[in-house]
Amino acid sequence: MIEVSSLTKSYGKSRGIDGISFSIPEGQIVGFLGPNGAGKTTTMNIITGYLSADAGDVKIAGVDVLENPIEAKRHIGYLPEQPPLYHAMTVEEYLDFAYELKGVKSGQQEHIGSICQMTGLSDVYRRVIGHLSKGYKQRVGLAQALIGDPDVLILDEPTVGLDPRQIVEIRNVIKEMGKSRTIILSTHILPEVSAVCERVLVISNGVIVADDKPENLAGAISGERTLLARIAGPRDGIQSLLRGQDGIQSANHLGEMETGSHDFVIESKPNIDIRKPMFAALAKAGYPILMLRPQDASLEDIFLKLTDEAVAHEKPKKSKKTSARPQQKELDELFMDEEEDE
């Protein structure tokens, strides 16, 4: 449905996005994940034809956005980061305008009526947009994107500024719409991705650093590398045994949760499955394993890890520890910037 190939766009000297390619089949809900300034919005603006790429092309339902913009745009509903609202108009006037602007030809009243129903706008239908709360403004923006029943929806941070109940509502609306449409939504709220999306594209510094299902992403990165183990026996004995074991990067004592046993967080070296040798060694020493489970990385960890790795990848000379710090700082700054904006 959406074909994006080697998209590149620079702003002055800095690369906004750098060779992004992906393809999305019909009916998939895809999450764009990345820190602010990673290139999510730029990519979306290019897909919708608002910006033009320096190189690469975008095809919507087989139609090239640059060659045949009118036809391609007919397939797309777009909710930009800041909803494109005329504050002096009422919701009714605004949606009528969007309907006429997009040249939709199915019964106006029913079409707009059903969209308002779906987005929960019926109560504020006759009110002036400028007087609505942020949550309602966001919904008006979403309603606008739905006009004309486009088969592709591009939503840039659709749940920003909503209260928790509204977030759940909007997510449900998105899921509902996703049954019959292809959707790309961007976010930096990580639980949103696992709640709504079937697939995640993580973007960092203008490149795609991961492309997978949300649950696989969690597994691939940390599932086998970090283990939580409860082992019966003396603390020092277990610890020195674990630390002496090949393939174990670190073994940290967590505490004594169950009498006579100790909990450890064990991190293996990359690409090594230490479970079997560890079991054998502990059994030989007479320390039974009472519990062993992979420690799931939260999406936050994955996110930081992936975006860190992208930075480390770009600057291979620096060690990982030093490269991680500026990245973290950068993230903090970015988040602070955003708070100031609001």
Binding site: T48, Y50, P69, K73, Q144
Partner: peptide
């Protein structure tokens, strides 16, 4: 200023 140009320029209109 209001970013409504994003609506105008991404609509199927010349």
């Amino acid at each position: 200023k209001q970013k409504t140009d994003q609506l105008l320029f991404t609509s199927p209109v010349k």
